[in-house]
């Protein structure tokens, strides 16, 4: 069981991610945008952060950049949930400090496989 933070402005996507991960026994917190995610991250130590790229208030890329300045989040896996089929978004996320990405659409099995992969 890991502590996971799911960040997405879309309630359906966030809900699906949280539902799936909770079903696998993880302890999942949810945040609606990057700013709220940073607040949550300061309050608790997460083993993994899953974040959408495009969000209002603070987007996922800025959020990753901020998270990586926090000593407690150096080295913590952060995956971007992205639909971008071009590589530029993935690379922008990586440059900001993301660990990797999960390309939408993904189904619950793919999500679990990726989470398992990154948590080792």
């Amino acid at each position: 069981m890991a502590k996971i933070l799911a960040v997405d402005d879309s309630a359906s996507m966030r809900g699906m991610v949280a539902f799936t991960l909770r079903g696998a026994g993880h302890d999942v917190s949810e945040a609606e945008n990057g700013q709220l995610a940073l607040d949550a991250a300061r309050g608790g130590s997460f083993d993994l952060v899953l974040a959408d790229v495009n969000m209002p208030v603070m987007d996922g890329i800025s959020m990753v950049r901020e998270l990586r300045t926090m000593p407690a989040y150096k080295g913590v896996p952060i995956l971007m949930l992205t639909t971008e089929s071009h590589t530029d978004k993935k690379m922008e996320g990586k440059a900001a400090g993301a660990t990797g990405w999960l390309v939408k659409p993904f189904d619950p099995e793919q999500l679990l496989a990726t989470v398992k992969r990154v948590l080792g």
Binding site: D9, S10, S12, M13, N54, L81, T83, K104, P105, D107
Partner: peptide, 11 residues
């Protein structure tokens, strides 16, 4: 548009 695109395929 992006959210709709992403969600549409997933759902």
């Amino acid at each position: 548009a992006h959210s709709i695109k992403g969600g549409a395929a997933t759902f």
